[in-house]
Write a protein that binds this DNA or RNA. Structure first.
Lengths: 221, 221
DNA sequence: TTAATAGTGTCTGTTAGACAGTATGGG
DNA sequence: CCCATACTGTCTAACAGACACTATTAA
């Protein structure tokens, strides 16, 4: 009996032009060589102390992305999902701002709308769907969307991020009440930029205590 | 390089005497032979079509439990968690009523209070904590606790299940409003038993559509 | 001054919890 | 009848959303 194939896959998500995008890479090896797929790879026992380490390494090597918000999504397993044999994919999802992707400027990374139908190899469409569902679900009652908004952002920008993820308009007063209640933001030093003939918005950033950990709401938005 | 050790572990939870219990088994092989541990075992490529299948097999073979509510919890990985080498544990949690455990009557199964400190081998304490946290969290806004309540139950019994999991009293009127709103229960045929000199409660059961799938609440309890 | 977006004060409708009442069984 | 627990009607307090108002910038 051959040994089980142990891999990690990463669903790297970002927000661009008011829509949710996933980073895909052209596969350089068989099977499915040349097809767009989630960044992933074998776990390296020598190099990776655990699967999370492997996911971070994959993001570093294949997309030039360092230390994003990264969370385990689920593990996809079985005889059928990989033509090479019984396999395990410990899957993660990562959230970064569009600026981080642009700064990484990796030539092989393709950003594709998550709702656009693709012929993804393996069960990557299922993994992607699971990640998007998880993100949208957690956006209802947590600070998760903040990681898509960049280092500093205005409240109208952040509200727009939430609205795109939840797919519906949020009451402005309620949104700001929730943000105050969460007590998670602080005013950022930089001067807010003007974007036209009107009052510019205050810049905010996550308080240091919340850069790594989510804030949960008793009641959702 | 040796191959990665691929296993499943199951956190089998039940409610007994108003407290949450986990099913533990004495390990029959090294390492940690003789210690109480979560039921688990190697993935069998020939036998198991995926890891969920392996978890169901483990429950069947090691605890005589068939087709419980079973959900993937998380995957625990790394160099350090198993003395034999780099390992993967795809972990699941299962919920059953105390009657199901009693009916299984497996002599090796030990039910232990989840809050009682144990010296569990590997990272099983961490896996257990993660499962309990997940159950308690999901109990806030879903029908998950119903799977601990047995086939038929009264509303006061079900409320008690929720209260034990959430660790606080719930308003009776609100609880019943939520249950009505969820529209997930139907009156069960059997006559309610009298438990003293007072009015006996109506028996309910999950509607067939919800025997497998959770019902989520917009706002929690 | 005007236009446009940022941000806030306040009213109102909805929802959750408190409380007290009725219902129904056994003794 | 009494008691204990099941169940329900209704009042109140807390919360979310609507709306309108003020604030601040560039043109």
């Amino acid at each position: 009996m051959e040994q089980i194939i142990c891999t990690v896959d990463v669903v790297l998500l970002t927000l661009q032009d008011d829509s949710l995008k996933v980073a895909l890479l052209k596969r350089t090896h068989a099977p499915y060589q040349g097809l767009l797929a989630l960044p992933g790879g074998y776990i390296h026992q020598g190099e990776d102390s655990d699967a999370r380490d492997a996911a971070l390494r994959v993001l570093r090597d294949k997309a030039n992305i360092h230390a994003p918000y990264l969370e385990q999504l689920a593990t996809f397993t079985g005889q059928a999902r990989d033509p090479r044999g019984w396999s395990i994919s410990v899957s993660y999802y990562a959230l970064v701002s569009a600026q981080v992707i642009e700064a990484a400027a990796h030539p092989d990374v393709h950003l594709v709308d998550v709702d656009r139908y693709q012929q993804l190899p393996f069960d990557h469409q299922h993994i992607l769907n699971t990640a998007v569902q998880r993100l949208r679900s957690k956006s209802q009652y947590s600070s998760l969307p903040c990681y898509l908004a960049g280092d500093t952002f205005t409240l109208p920008q952040l509200q727009r991020v939430y609205e795109v993820l939840m797919g519906e308009a949020i009451n402005k007063v309620s949104f700001r009440r929730k943000m105050t209640e969460m007590d998670m933001l602080e005013v950022a030093g930089g001067k807010p930029e003007a974007h036209g003939a009107h009052r510019p918005a205050q810049l905010y950033q996550l308080k240091p205590a919340f850069r790594q950990h989510l804030r949960l709401l008793e009641r959702g938005f």
